[in-house]
Design a binder for these strands. Structure first.
Lengths: 166, 166
DNA sequence: GTCAACAGTGTTATAATATAACAATATAGG
DNA sequence: CCTATATTGTTATATTATAACACTGTTGAC
């Protein structure tokens, strides 16, 4: 039974209340931007909301199409500027291997960038495993490499998708 | 003194015999392809050699320009096909965060994809740290995530570049 | 309030990376 | 040699991202 299993990140928990996810993310974004005295304008907020529409990463041009579907005359720079802002503020992350963007599940907190990417359902779950972090820090230390940032992208099949094919 | 320091991957060892690197890589590629009964054609071999020209990753279009400089009339598909072949055979890797390609330093061996990317000199060193590997395997296991492939891209400044600015 | 300074957005054009589709050629095996 | 298949050539186009400059809205000094 699901509740007996190790606790999953919301993204990997099929039955989770996603409406709550989105609500929390926007709330957190509002507060974070307020506290930093930066402006979460309408375009930026809407882009963030569209990205949070699912836990699968969304491409910049997909976002653009969604904005256009809403009657906005969005051109690439509009979208990329919003994405740049959200990236800078740590509200979203870019998944390099997919050229796509996902909402950050714990903005404001310092954290490594570690992602589990399900090849079946497309979901990307952000995890924060100190052991991975430490292992990387230890190795770079040994090699005299000054670590700035690290990204771990793990591709595979999530539990729900494995269960579904049984 | 360099010789007293922990041993570095060749890519991060400024004084290393790079001609030897290239030679070894091509030799290994020849043997690997022969043993697998696949053809390391002239284009493919030349692309591999161009990628090995440095330990910094090279973009597909840069390779194309180099081929053209040699009188070949290379178009994008030519380059991408060669890259696809080399990727399939594990002779090169793609650095997703840079959209660029580097030679694999131990083709044929099963290995994780772990890269140290120096922001100063552009060098990318492939490392193989079992601790990182294990930490990732442990976490995915816990979450019921079936691991297919993993990429670790660490950005920072390599030892030589740090030393150089002192 | 008004105006200047700056942040944000609109708009046009283009750069950089990658693939589709089909024709031509080279290679290996019968 | 000849056919099947792998490889390469060629043209066109898709996808992702940025440059450059004009316009608009917001904020703070006065």
């Amino acid at each position: 039974m699901a509740q007996r299993r190790p606790s999953l990140p919301p993204a990997l928990s099929r039955g989770h209340d996603h409406h709550q996810c989105v609500h929390d993310a926007l709330e957190a974004a509002d507060q974070l931007c307020a506290s930093r005295d930066v402006r979460l304008t309408e375009v930026r907020r809407r882009v963030l909301e569209l990205i949070w529409a699912s836990h699968a990463p969304v491409g910049a041009y997909a976002i653009m199409d969604l904005l256009r579907g809403e009657g906005r005359n969005a051109m690439p720079p509009t979208v990329y500027r919003a994405l740049d802002f959200l990236l800078e503020q740590g509200l979203i992350h870019r998944i390099a291997s997919l050229n796509a963007y996902i909402g950050c599940s714990h903005p404001g907190d310092a954290h490594a960038m570690q992602y589990l990417i399900c090849k079946k359902c497309g979901t990307v779950a952000e995890i924060d495993d100190p052991a991975i972090d430490k292992a990387i820090a230890a190795t770079t230390e040994t090699l005299g490499f000054a670590l700035d940032s690290q990204t771990v992208e793990v591709a595979g099949v999530c539990r729900d998708c494995r269960d579904a094919t049984r």
